[in-house]
């Protein structure tokens, strides 16, 4: 019933990267970035911030038809700045404040003047952190990989 999007085309919208990365910034990181802004932006709430549920779907057999696995808590917010820029924030969990801050930074990012601030303060560090975590997990897991070897039998 819900609209289905062509997911491989998602990456073409640069805002997906922005919203995805903001979802991975901690609330402390977002609050700290807000404080370092020259001027705290004034904004109006369009929706939320609110916490609700998203039902997580799996696929039968891993790649077959979808089924409903269970729900997860999600917090989201949508705001607009005085100049009309609309920002969206989404994240797993119940932190509504973090969702709202994410929405503000998503809105700020949309103007050239504030984009580099958001990139430098939040997005690039989040990308670096994510890469480090991914690498660390892969390396720790790789250390538990089994190297099979065959014992030499005495038959000859």
């Amino acid at each position: 019933m819900s609209a289905a999007f062509a997911h491989d085309s998602n990456t073409h919208d640069p805002r997906k990267r922005v919203i995805d990365l903001l979802a991975r910034c901690s609330r402390d990181e977002l609050e700290a970035a807000m404080v370092t802004l020259e001027q705290i932006p004034s904004y109006l709430r369009l929706r939320g911030p609110e916490t609700g549920l998203v039902i997580v779907k799996g696929r039968i057999g891993g790649g077959g038809s979808p089924f409903n696995l269970g729900e997860t808590t999600v917090s989201r917010a949508a705001i607009h700045l005085e100049d009309g820029r609309v920002g969206h924030g989404f994240r797993l969990g119940t932190d509504r404040r973090a969702a709202e801050l994410s929405a503000v930074f998503d809105a700020l990012w949309q103007a050239e003047t504030e984009r580099s601030f958001v990139e430098q303060t939040l997005l690039l560090p989040a990308e670096r952190k994510q890469a480090l975590e991914t690498d660390a997990l892969a390396r720790e897991t790789a250390a538990t990989k089994v190297d099979f070897f065959t014992m030499v039998r005495g038959e000859d």
């Binding site: 999007f5 979802a23 999600v74 969206h88 989404f90």
Partner: peptide
């Protein structure tokens, strides 16, 4: 998660 008002899906985490 598909977000209709954005026209693309976002990663919630």
């Amino acid at each position: 998660f598909d977000v209709a008002e954005l026209g693309f899906s976002v990663s919630l985490g």
